[in-house]
Computed example of a mutant assay.
Amino acid sequence: MKRPADLLCAAVLVAGLAACGDEPEREPLPSGIVMHVDQTRLERKTRNVFVRVENNTKSPLTITGFVLSSPRFDRVTWQGDESMEPGQQADLEFTMPPGRCGDGVDASVRLTYRTGDSDERESVGRADDPFKAIGLLLDRDCARKTLAEAADLEVGTPQVEGTGPTSVLRVPITLTPTGKRDDVRFGGFESTPLFRQAGDSPVDVDEPISSEQPTRIVMSVVPARCDPHALAEDKVGRLFGMRVLAPGLPDNSWFYLPLDGDQQKAFYAYFRATCGV
């Protein structure tokens, strides 16, 4: 008498699909292999992220590939050859695909690896988001996508108003309606470590985005501090959060205002001229 498993394999073969024996064995991850998804602060204006693998076992570990899955982005495949001794860790870098709206990250990793002199094997494990950096990146994608459904965003040329320490840098922004939805609203801008929003800049607002004509907004900023170290050590000083309000979005949804190279240079030039550094 055939076993149920044999009957199942026969049915699969009749259907023209791969034989049961072709499915790779998925062992549980050995105790001590821990995985995280993360992004460093220096990479916040990019989509460069990584899976960090910690080898807390007593054997050398070699990673040759992984498949990263999440409901919030398309599947990511990585191949390489990364070895680590017991107690070491490795960051396996990749470019994050565009994110979808949702909650958390809920990342699963199918890891291909060897421990010590073992044959290559595959295991599936979870990867947490310890500092919520990946969740925030995906939330920014969601906010940007939501705004794009309602309006096309155009950032104009920054202009300096006034002279000396009392001058203000103003950035014109135009939101041209797409006609696809009329329930998205503008929530204001956020400051950065290098620049703060000026008194007349919209910060905590709730303004409808017109579905019939362009909405024009001006972001106005001044230096948050005036010392050479602030400029020399700056990494995120031009990453201005732009808040988006819409049904289904968390209350504090935002994304980075997109600035091209010339626009970014204008901020630094203004800082130097105003602060005299």
Rank of each mutant, 00 (worst) to 15 (best):
residue 208 P to A: 09
residue 251 D to F: 12
residue 266 A to I: 03
residue 6 D to H: 07
residue 83 S to G: 11
residue 7 L to H: 05
residue 34 V to H: 13
residue 203 V to W: 02
residue 251 D to M: 14
residue 158 P to N: 01
residue 33 I to W: 03
residue 206 D to T: 11
residue 114 R to Y: 03
residue 65 G to T: 09
residue 5 A to G: 00
residue 160 V to M: 00
residue 42 L to C: 08
residue 231 L to G: 08
residue 10 A to H: 10
residue 228 P to T: 14
residue 121 R to P: 05
residue 241 G to P: 01
residue 88 Q to R: 15
residue 74 D to P: 07
residue 267 F to P: 01
residue 52 R to G: 08
residue 212 E to L: 13
residue 250 P to F: 09
residue 97 P to E: 11
residue 106 D to Q: 15
residue 180 K to P: 01
residue 271 F to E: 08
residue 263 Q to D: 09
residue 26 R to E: 04
residue 181 R to E: 12
residue 170 R to V: 10
residue 85 E to A: 15
residue 162 G to C: 08
residue 151 A to V: 02
residue 243 R to T: 03
residue 256 Y to R: 00
residue 122 E to C: 07
residue 224 A to Q: 15
residue 2 K to P: 12
residue 200 D to C: 00
residue 68 L to H: 09
residue 156 G to I: 09
residue 141 D to V: 06
residue 250 P to S: 03
residue 180 K to M: 06
residue 106 D to H: 14
residue 258 P to K: 02
residue 229 H to V: 13
residue 100 R to Q: 15
residue 43 E to P: 01
residue 173 I to R: 00
residue 256 Y to L: 03
residue 248 G to N: 11
residue 27 E to D: 08
residue 89 Q to P: 01
residue 251 D to C: 03
residue 216 R to W: 07
residue 144 R to L: 08
residue 180 K to Q: 14
residue 176 T to N: 04
residue 45 K to Y: 06
residue 60 P to A: 06
residue 133 A to N: 14
residue 84 M to A: 12
residue 231 L to K: 14
residue 102 G to T: 14
residue 31 S to P: 02
residue 120 E to W: 07
residue 275 C to E: 06
residue 257 L to V: 01
residue 181 R to I: 11
residue 257 L to A: 02
residue 217 I to P: 09
residue 259 L to K: 00
residue 87 G to L: 11
residue 120 E to D: 03
residue 245 L to V: 13
residue 147 L to T: 04
residue 52 R to H: 01
residue 110 R to K: 10
residue 186 F to D: 01
residue 152 D to A: 11
residue 207 E to D: 07
residue 89 Q to C: 10
residue 99 G to Y: 04
